[in-house]
Design a protein around this nucleic acid. Structure first.
Lengths: 136, 136
DNA sequence: GACTTACTTGCAACCGAGTTGCAAAATATT
DNA sequence: AATATTTTGCAACTCGGTTGCAAGTAAGTC
C-alpha cells in the first residue's frame, strides 16, 4: 500500500514499518483505538514505548486526534487533513454501551449553543452514549 | 454545617470528617475538582486512598459526577439530586484554556442532534473549550 | 453511657498507563 | 557505500488508581 507512505511523507514523517502498521490499523478498523487496542492488534512486533511514541507523533502532526469517553483515552483518524498548525476539531463521537466501540460521526455538525455573556468558545466536543445500529 | 450531614444522610452515608470535608470543598469551590486538587485542599489530613474511596462512594451515590477533558478526570457536584438509580447526566462543561478551570454550565441544555438511522442515544456530554469570563 | 455490629480508615503493597535516557538500529541524503 | 539524522528497544521510573487487611470509628440497642 503506497497510500500509507504518501500519508506519512505528506506529514514529513519517515516511513517505518511501525508507523505503516499503526496507520494501516487505523484505516482498516474504523473506530477509535486505544493504545491497548493497537498493542493487541500489532502483537509482539513492536515495543510498547514505540507505539506510544508513534501515537504522540501522529497526534502532533494532525494525523489522529484524541477521543475521550468515561473510561479512557482513544485515538481516531482525522477526517479532513489536519496539519501541525490547523486542527479542525469540532467532533461528535458516539460510544456504544453494548459493543463498547466509539466512532466519529463525521457528517454531523454540532448545533449552536447559546453561551452566557463573557464566554468565548474555541472548540466543541460532543460525546453521545447509547446503542449503535449494529447492536440495536 | 448541618447541611453536610443532611446530604450524607440523605444518601445513606455515615458522616465522617473526611466525607464532610470533601463535600464541603466541592460546595465552596464551585468548579470541577480532581483527586489531586482535593489532596491539595485537604492537606495531610487524610490518606490518598481514603480520598479515592470517598470519591468513589460519592460517585456511586449520585452526589458527584465525572467530568472529562483532554487532560484528565475530574468530579463535580450533581446539581439536581441524583440517586443511585437515576442519573441525570446531560451536561455541558466549559474548560477555560487560560485558568484551566472546568465548570458545569447548569442552565444550558444541549440542543437536539439529528442522529443517523439506527442510533439510539442515552446521554449527551458536551465539552466546550475556550476562555471564560474571568479570563476574558 | 457502655456494648455490639457494621462500616470506614490507614498502611503497605500492588497494578497499569504513560514517560525518559541512552545506546543500537534503521532511514534518508550525498 | 558513507554520513548525518531520526527512530527503536530496553530498562528504569513516575503517577494515578486499586486491593487486602488490621485497627479505628459511627450508629443502634440495651
Amino acid at each position: 500500500m503506497d497510500q500509507l507512505r504518501e500519508t506519512l511523507k505528506g506529514h514529513q514523517l519517515r516511513t517505518t514499518t511501525c508507523r505503516e502498521d499503526v496507520l494501516s490499523t487505523f484505516m482498516t478498523k474504523k473506530n477509535a483505538l486505544s493504545h491497548g487496542d493497537l498493542e493487541g492488534a500489532l502483537g509482539e512486533n513492536y515495543d510498547r514505548v514505540t507505539i506510544y511514541r508513534t501515537l504522540k507523533t501522529f497526534l502532533e502532526k494532525g494525523i489522529i486526534h484524541k477521543v475521550l469517553d468515561d473510561e479512557g483515552l482513544r485515538y481516531a483518524l482525522c477526517s479532513h487533513s489536519c496539519s501541525e498548525e490547523k486542527h479542525q476539531h469540532d467532533h461528535i463521537h458516539f460510544k456504544c454501551s453494548e459493543c463498547g466501540e466509539t466512532n466519529c460521526l463525521e457528517n454531523l455538525h454540532i448545533p449552536a449553543v447559546q453561551l452566557p455573556q463573557g464566554y468565548h468558545a474555541e472548540n466543541f466536543n460532543l460525546l453521545i452514549q447509547g446503542v449503535c445500529p449494529k447492536c440495536n
